[in-house]
Simulated scan of single mutants.
Amino acid sequence: MISQKAQYALKALVVLARLEPGEAITTVQIAEKRDIPRKFLEQILLELKRHGLVASKRGRDGGYMLLRSADKITFGEVLRIVDGPLAPLPCLSKVAYRRCEGCTDEESCEVRRVFKLVTSATRAVLDRATIEDAITTDDDDLAQFMVSAAA
């Protein structure tokens, strides 16, 4: 399950992706559009800015905008920034690997074997699905895309 923070980050990025190139929107406007607590949104946007996904602009027409195009920002990248590793078990994490407590042999672990498949399929989908896909792809095409990514 993804965190509320990750959901808000993805919702904010969708709002930013719908803007015209060069257009900016304030945190107040984003918060109102997507019903996100403004102070929490500000923290999220600062984190996304530190990771090079969004930029801020000062002044009368200031606010936030995407730094990279929506088709270059994946759900997987955003989730890793906000929530950390995608793997449900520490022994499957690519960035935060550690042996599971009480594990004597990862290769023969039945639980790990099943979750390795789950993790692989999840990564495949999330690392291919972009913010642009969420906006432009209809439900049937998106479902087909997800199935093909996980295969």
Score class of each variant (00 low, 15 high):
Ile81Gly: 01
Lys49Trp: 01
Leu53Trp: 02
Thr27Gln: 10
Lys57Ile: 10
Leu41Phe: 01
Gly84His: 05
Thr74Gln: 03
Glu32Arg: 11
Gly52Arg: 04
Ala70Leu: 07
Arg80Gln: 10
Gly76Ser: 10
Gly63Leu: 04
Glu47Ala: 05
Leu89Trp: 02
Gly62Leu: 12
Arg99Lys: 15
Ile44Gly: 01
Arg60Phe: 07
Gly59Trp: 08
Arg58Gln: 12
Ser93Ile: 06
Asp105Ala: 11
Ala55Pro: 00
Lys33Arg: 13
Gly52Ser: 03
Leu41Pro: 04
Ile30Asp: 01
Arg60Gly: 10
Arg60Val: 13
Ile25Leu: 10
Gln29Phe: 09
Arg34Ser: 13
Ser56Thr: 08
Arg38Gly: 09
Cys100Met: 15
Val82Met: 14
Ser56Tyr: 03
Tyr64Trp: 15
Arg68Lys: 15
Thr74Arg: 04
Val95Thr: 13
Lys57Cys: 08
Gly62Arg: 09
Thr26Leu: 11
Cys103Glu: 15
Leu46Pro: 03
Thr104Gln: 15
Arg80Gly: 06
Lys72Glu: 13
Leu53Glu: 01
Glu101Asn: 09
Pro90Asp: 15
Pro85Arg: 11
Ala24Thr: 06
Thr26His: 08
Leu66Met: 08
Glu101Arg: 14
His51Phe: 06
Ile81Phe: 04
Glu32Met: 10
Phe40Arg: 11
Leu46Gly: 14
Leu41Cys: 07
Leu41Asp: 07
Val78His: 02
Phe40Ile: 13
His51Gly: 02
Arg58Lys: 13
Leu92Val: 08
Gly102His: 09
Gln43His: 11
Gly59Leu: 09
Lys49Ala: 13
Arg50Pro: 02
Cys91Met: 12
Gly84Arg: 11
Asp35Ser: 13
Asp105Thr: 05
Gln43Phe: 07
Lys57Asp: 04
Ser69Asp: 10
Lys72Tyr: 12
Ala55Glu: 12
Pro90Gln: 12
Leu79Asn: 05
Ile81Pro: 04
Gly102Gln: 14
Lys94Cys: 09
Ala87Val: 01
